[in-house]
Design a protein around this nucleic acid. Sequence first.
DNA 1: TCAAAAGTGTTGTCCTTACACCCATGC
DNA 2: GCATGGGTGTAAGGACAACACTTTTGA
Lengths: 238, 238
Amino acid sequence: MTRTDGIRVAGSTVILTLRPSALGTPALALPLVRRTREPFADRWALPGGWIAPDESPIDTAARTLAETTGLTPSYLEQLYAFGAVDRSPTRVISIVYWALLRQDEVLAQSAAHRASGRAPENVEWFDVDALPELAFDHADIIEYALWRLRSKVGYSRVAHGFLPSEFTLADLREAYEAILGRQLDPANFRRQVEATGNLIPTDRFRTGSHRPARLYRDNTDVELAARGPLGPEETSIR
Amino acid sequence: MTRTDGIRVAGSTVILTLRPSALGTPALALPLVRRTREPFADRWALPGGWIAPDESPIDTAARTLAETTGLTPSYLEQLYAFGAVDRSPTRVISIVYWALLRQDEVLAQSAAHRASGRAPENVEWFDVDALPELAFDHADIIEYALWRLRSKVGYSRVAHGFLPSEFTLADLREAYEAILGRQLDPANFRRQVEATGNLIPTDRFRTGSHRPARLYRDNTDVELAARGPLGPEETSIR
DNA sequence: TCAAAAGTGTTGTCCTTACACCCATGC
DNA sequence: GCATGGGTGTAAGGACAACACTTTTGA
């Protein structure tokens, strides 16, 4: 009755960050991996791998994320288990996670890779609105991850996962604007985020342009998003 | 490179309905199955089974739901993929769904089972606040499903999944109250659900107690819950 | 001095809540 | 009649959007 049913289980992750665009405003971007084998050889795909026998799905996600980017995510949550029979030539169920990376860490890591000349092979970053053709159902998966991010930004603090430890309210507002794809009123935005009580003002300011802007820190006592009754081993938040 | 890694994939479903309680108000209830083998022999567990090689996870959920209850759900959505290494003595990843059944269909089916004397074996219904000891991590899973239901009732129409095709506003309000565990103001509730435009008033009334109450139908053009970009094959709604 | 972003104030609209009140039926 | 739930009216309070306005810097 123990069935060897030939279903293999993979883990993949939609890894999102913000990076400066041509206009100076940040834009959503993600790393993809060029496949070296069939099926879909040479196509771009989400980072991922097989779930090892002694590995929880979230650990597979964190492991392949580190292999791809060298980084630890600021937010990591299960997105969905994709298991349609025809989504791959062989039967594969993919447990997909989505992750956020802080933009400063991505930039520092890219600089380190350039300096050392030892960047991960076959990894490239793409703006989410200029994606290449993707393997399997990965285009649908990314679309769903973006939908989830855009939904969740409205009722949680996931946008903070993109920012460094100290940031201005303009930084935070630009992150929201990049995610939502529309402008927000700076005055109202300020009051709304201040009212949450999750921002700690520092006595430091960012100068350089016009009137100096106060720097804030996150209140790390509060999670970026409510997880419900799932324990911390099932969602990982730094 | 094709790994036979020994991970088996199961599908389980948290099947919820409302049934009249001692006080006359409806209460959330779900069917459990008594296990006949180790591990956890004789313990109660969620209905489920192995995902067949040619079967999508949602089809496993729908199939085992039908085997357990003889019914088709009014709402069926993926809950979460549980895959912690130690959640079972052998390595099992469970892709769990949650489903809603209309209370009238459950009552009719129970009556049919009693009449024919051929009810499904080892299946029993429990109120969600009086659950027995459960196998595996199924208690956590049910808790998470209830959290999801309670969250989702606030921004979608999932509560309608419990009701028959025609219902009064009091029926609908009692469903909300049973899910949320608190009383709602009938006057304000009426205005809120009428404002959504998702209710179609009929010209029929329910008599029998005091002033007759108008019967409403659902606007079936509108889904019970927004699914985002996931296609209809990934969530199933009747 | 000027442009531009930081930050504050003010107002109107919409939504929610609380609760008073009337309506229609069974008993 | 009267108890009870069905159904309407209304006013207070809060959240939110729009936008005028002041402050503070670099150039």
